[in-house]
Design a protein around this nucleic acid. Structure first.
Length: 495
DNA sequence: AAAAAAC
């Protein structure tokens, strides 16, 4: 055991914690063997996918679908089954063509389960939970494009809200990608600085952030009288956040009472459950068990950095691995994002930083450069923790473990899950490495691991060869699988 | 106390 490892089990620490650390170490050999076996299995799976072409390659758990008794008794026409083909969903030919052109040959599980529910008549609210990178955006975008009447292309009919500018822009791109064959399709981004002032919005679909959307409705720039659908992406975050929860509610209250409300997220913590139920009453609900939330393709690891000063050195040692694919480094504050970026650049590394202190155009440009692979390493805050889809991201680093509550008293398990979900998208694999550097961060990571039943692999700062080998392994698997895992966002950027 | 989100 290295010096660093001995720090992790110092005697004043609770027994439970020691058990965890030791069991992780004891499992190392076993896990290595299993990893090798899994690598073989993954390759076989890829081969299978080649033959089957059309399977998404996703291994998703069974759903816990809540269906009321009266609905079960209704009749068979009520689509409480999972559709297995796009052709079963009554989509327009243009929409079908758009999906197939994106290589979305068959619906993923969340798409197959949620779309028949969202498109049922009369419309009913929906609360849908599915792991990161399983195609939630394409699911609600398809629902939106299916509900909109394109004989009235200037009339606002569907509104999607997201918690960050970047995510709103990304959804806008997916609407354009899936709706590529719909003519005329008009989409507007209601985010700061993107709409001409005092001009009416003449688009059937609007994607935006809550503050700007509230503003344009109040100014009567956006006519919501014919709005049919309201989507909250990252709904738990939108409703939980003080400020944003209010804004979302105010927006909803300005819309017609008949509007169909669709809530999507990978996480719906109990805390927001009752508020979400009030926000979208009588909703169809797709839920996951807590233990089903982890994405199997993401290898989750941690490094004991011993203390805060060593974190930066460890980060620089990982730089070579970060640039094999692309990487996102999450830190707590904007200021530390700036500072670490400056330092790494001074030390000869190419790293960019993105957070909400930059102005809108700069933010758009930074993310666009990252999507195009011009920048391989991006250091950021929680602004990019949720929803952002860059298929080539193979590594996520939690430089700071996400915390929440007064005085950062609690681990933020939801944010952890969303952050690592920036890799391993749609059947791909990825790596996450979390930095532990004191008792508090150690306890926090332990808490998160226990919450989801995660097996974390410990990387030794004395053995970088092993770290390198593990990371290269997953990236190799990723390449093999990449061709069979489509991405609407990749396509959006290309067009 | 921080991140995000409005003018």
């Amino acid at each position: 055991m290295s010096d660093l490892a001995s720090r992790i089990t110092k005697p004043d620490e609770p027994a439970k914690k020691v058990d965890w650390a030791e069991s992780v170490e004891a499992d190392e050999n076993k896990q290595q063997a299993e990893a090798e076996a899994a690598a073989g299995a993954a390759e076989a799976q890829v081969d299978g996918a080649v033959e089957e072409l059309g399977g998404s390659g996703l291994q998703e758990p069974e759903w816990d679908v809540e269906v009321s008794l009266s609905e079960l008794q209704a009749n068979e026409a009520t689509p409480f089954h999972s559709a297995t083909q796009w052709q079963d969903m009554g989509l327009s030919e243009d929409l079908l063509k758009g999906l197939l052109a994106l290589k979305f040959l068959k619906p993923s599980k969340v798409q197959g389960k949620s779309l028949p529910l969202m498109l049922s008549d009369p419309p009913r609210n929906m609360m849908a939970q599915s792991q990161s990178g399983t195609g939630k955006t394409a699911a609600f975008v398809t629902a939106i494009l299916s509900r909109v009447d394109f004989t009235k292309p200037d009339q606002p009919q569907a509104l999607a809200l997201a918690p960050s500018r970047e995510l709103a822009r990304q959804i806008e791109g997916v609407v354009n990608a899936i709706g590529r064959f719909i003519e005329p399709l008009k989409v507007a981004a209601a985010i700061p600085g993107a709409l001409p002032r005092d001009q009416p919005v003449r688009s059937a679909v609007i994607v935006g952030t809550p503050g700007t959307v509230q503003d344009v409705i109040k100014r009567r720039q956006l006519d919501v009288s014919q709005l049919k659908v309201l989507v909250l992406d990252e709904a738990d975050n939108m409703l939980d956040q003080q400020g944003m929860g209010d804004q979302c509610l105010r927006v909803k209250n300005m819309l017609p009472k008949s509007v169909q409300i669709l809530l999507f997220s990978a996480t719906f913590p109990d805390k927001v459950g009752s508020y979400a139920t009030k926000f979208a009453p009588n909703a169809h609900s797709l839920k996951l068990q807590r233990s089903e939330l982890t994405v199997k393709g993401i290898s989750q690891m941690f490094i004991d950095c011993a203390d805060d000063n060593i974190k930066y050195d460890v980060l620089c040692k990982l730089y070579g691995l970060m640039t094999i694919g692309q990487s996102v480094i999450f830190v707590k504050t904007r200021e530390s994002a700036n500072e670490i970026q400056r330092r790494m650049v001074a030390d000869g590394h190419k790293v960019s930083a993105l957070h909400a202190a930059f102005d809108g155009n700069e933010r758009d440009e930074l993310l666009s450069k990252f999507r195009q692979g011009e920048n391989k390493v991006l250091i950021t805050t929680n602004v990019l923790a949720r929803g952002i889809d860059v298929s080539t991201v193979s590594m996520v680093i939690n430089y700071d473990i996400p915390m929440k509550g007064r005085g950062d008293s609690e681990p933020d398990a939801e944010t952890y899950l969303h952050r690592i979900g920036r890799t391993g998208r749609f059947g791909r694999v990825g790596v996450s490495i979390s930095f532990v550097y004191d008792k508090k961060s150690y306890d926090a990571l332990l808490g998160i691991a226990n919450t989801y039943g995660i097996d974390l692999v410990r990387l030794d700062t004395d053995d970088w060869d092993e770290a390198e080998e593990r990371v290269k392994e997953v990236i190799k698997k990723n390449r093999a699988q990449a061709a069979y895992a489509p991405s609407a966002t990749d396509n959006a950027k290309a067009s």
